[in-house]
Design a protein around this nucleic acid. Sequence first.
DNA 1: CAAAAAACCGACCGTCAAGCGGTGTTGGGT
DNA 2: ACCCAACACCGCTTGACGGTCGGTTTTTTG
Lengths: 134, 134
Amino acid sequence: MRRPVHPPLLGHLEATVMELLWTHGEAEAKDVHQRLGKARGITLNTVQSTLKRLFEKGLLDRHKVSHAHVYRPRLSRQEFHSGALGELISELMGGQAEAMVSAFVSLTERAGPQHLERLEKLVAERRRALKAKK
Amino acid sequence: MRRPVHPPLLGHLEATVMELLWTHGEAEAKDVHQRLGKARGITLNTVQSTLKRLFEKGLLDRHKVSHAHVYRPRLSRQEFHSGALGELISELMGGQAEAMVSAFVSLTERAGPQHLERLEKLVAERRRALKAKK
DNA sequence: CAAAAAACCGACCGTCAAGCGGTGTTGGGT
DNA sequence: ACCCAACACCGCTTGACGGTCGGTTTTTTG
């Protein structure tokens, strides 16, 4: 009866495969197996299964080239990550945006002051853009 | 072989229970069952199991009062949420803090301009604090 | 001491990712 | 046109986990 709290979470192999595809643009099962299946000692079949599952989840697109499927990420790494982040946030905090923002700032600070600076710049930029549109 | 990508993720019932405990401070199984088990039509046993699993995961503390365990969150809602956020971020982005920050700002903006304002204030505050310490 | 209350144990179910073997399908070379 | 290698697809197993509960034991208390 498991109703996942955070829909788009990936397994270990899945995440690795996505990472590879984000990095290399697109690939077919054979390539993916070559690049990480070998090291893990898993079958080409396993890689194919994983690719297919990712496809069925809508995370990958594919098209046929001769008899092989060529897989490509449906969303960019950025889009996916920000989607996951949004999922988590909305799931976690029922409307408590305040707390979330505060937590994020803390996290950013701990990650390094330069990131805090970067954050400030970005926010300023967005607000300027908003004001201009108004 | 599931190796969760994000360790501290909760199931549906678990999340609901945590939420209740964060709101009410502490409670024993009976109370929890009273408040949400009834509505769901689940047994007191189910609630007890859930509480126990949460305890075993280290998310709850408990102490005995007469024969009942009284459960209480080990971390505040804030601490837990910011921990989960941190987990996700570090898991998702291998060092790509930049992208994360940017994604978060977008999310905040979409959530509403007032949040963007709030974010700006918070960042400014932190930076001031940092500078003062230096 | 007995009844009531609650914890504990163990089981079952559904779901999901990982993993793989076997079989079907097909494109391309001869 | 035909055959074979390459690849897809199907179905299954395993392990983990959350939700759910029945049955048993332990503990409190009247």
